[in-house]
Design a protein around this nucleic acid. Sequence first.
DNA 1: GTCAAGTAAATTGTCGACAATCGACAAAAT
DNA 2: ATTTTGTCGATTGTCGACAATTTACTTGAC
Lengths: 224, 224
Amino acid sequence: MTAQDNSASFEKLDKNSLVQQVADTLISAIVNGRLSPGEKLSESVIAKQMGISRAPVREAARLLESKGLLTYEPNRGFFIRAITAKELDDVFELRILIETTAIARFVAQGAAPYIPLLEQQLEQMESDAHHTDTQAHIQGDLEFHRIILSHCGNARFLSTFEQLAQEIELSVMLIGQLYADPLFLAQSHVPLLQAIKVGDADLAKATMQRHLQEAREHVVSQFT
Amino acid sequence: MTAQDNSASFEKLDKNSLVQQVADTLISAIVNGRLSPGEKLSESVIAKQMGISRAPVREAARLLESKGLLTYEPNRGFFIRAITAKELDDVFELRILIETTAIARFVAQGAAPYIPLLEQQLEQMESDAHHTDTQAHIQGDLEFHRIILSHCGNARFLSTFEQLAQEIELSVMLIGQLYADPLFLAQSHVPLLQAIKVGDADLAKATMQRHLQEAREHVVSQFT
DNA sequence: GTCAAGTAAATTGTCGACAATCGACAAAAT
DNA sequence: ATTTTGTCGATTGTCGACAATTTACTTGAC
C-alpha cells in the first residue's frame, strides 16, 4: 500500500506541471478565439505574459503541435494552425471509419455493463442543452463517443480518436455553435443508444455511420 | 564535438536541425537494439555523449514520444517504449481499417497514373530481397503502401498511417526479420498490384484485407 | 516611386547553471 | 524485525544569457 489510505485521506493534489498549465492556457486561448488561426505565437511574449521562462512555453508548444493545434517552422517558430474544410472533412472520414468499427465491436462483445454510463451521459447532455456553453455541448457529445471507444477492445482506436476529437472540437468552437438547438445534438444520440441496447452490432454500426455522416456534413458545410 | 565526419561532399551541410539529428540517432539506436525497451533514457548522458546540451536532447525526446517510441513520466524522464503484442495487434487492426478504405478510394478514383510507381517499387523490393538488410525490406514494404495512401484522396489517412508504420517498423526490427525468405515479402504484393491494374475497387480492398491480415498474424505471433 | 542591398532589431536555437523532485539507503523508533 | 523518518546522490524542471537566424527597416541607385 502507499503511504496513506485512511478513511480521511487527502485527495492527491494535482501538481499539474507548469508545461501542462501553459498548454491548457494556450488551448483555451485558441478555442476561445483570442488567438486566431495563422497567427504567430511568440515564445518570449507568452513567457513574459505568464511570468515564466521560455523553456516551458516551448515544451507546451511542442505538445500542442503534436496535438495538431499548432504548426512549427524551423527558425520561424510556432503558428496557430489554420485547418481547412478539406482537412476537417478528412478527419471526419477517418473518425467514421474508426467509430463504426468500434461500436460494432463494442456491441458484439457485450455492451450491457456500460449502458448505464451511456444513459447517464445522455442525460447530462440534455441538461447541458439548456445552457449556452457551446464547449460544454461539444465535450458532452465527445464524451458519449469516448465511452464506446474506451470499451471496444482496441486502445489504439481511442488514442487516435483523441487526436481527431481535438481538432473537431477546435473547429466547432471556431464556428461558434454546433446546432441552433443544442437539444437536437443530445437527441441525435438516442438511436445509437437504442441500437446498443438491442445488441445488434450491424444495426449499431449503420446507425453510427448515419449519425457521424450527418454531423460531418453539418459541421464541414458551416466551416468556411 | 558535433559529429560531422563528412568526406568532402558538397551536400547541403546538415540543414537538418540539431534536434532532428538527435532524433534520428536515437531512432536508429532503438531500432538496432542498442537501446532496449523499458530502458531509461538519461538526458544528461545522451547530451554528454553527443557533445551538446540537454535542450535539444529533450526536444528530440518529446518528438519521439509523440511518435510513440518513447514514454514519459513526469519528474522521472523518458523511457524506451515497450510495445506489447496486444498493442501491436491493435495497431494492425487500425492499419487494416485505413488501408482497405484507402486502396478502394485509390482504385476508384483512377490509379492508372501511379501504377508505374508501384511497379518500380516492387522491383526495388525484389532486388533488395537478395540482401540481408531487414530494415531495407521493411521500409521497401512500407513505401509500397505509402504510394497508395499518398494518392487515396485523404491526407489524414497517410499521416495516421505514418504513426502506425513507425511502431510496426520498430517491432519488426526487434523481432529481427520479417520472413525467412525476403523474396516472399515482395511477391506478396503482386496480387495487390494486379487488383489495382484491373481497376476493381472491391477486389483491391479484399486483397488488401487478406494481405494485411496475413502480415498481422505473422508479425504478432512472432512478437513475444 | 520601385527595387536592391545592407544594416538594425527581434526572434529562435542552444547553452551552462541552479532549483525542485525523486529513489534509495541509513538511521531511528516502535 | 518492521516501519517510519532523515539524508544523500542523481535526475529532471526551470531559468537567464548568448549565438545563430530571420525579419524589418533604412538607405541609395535607377
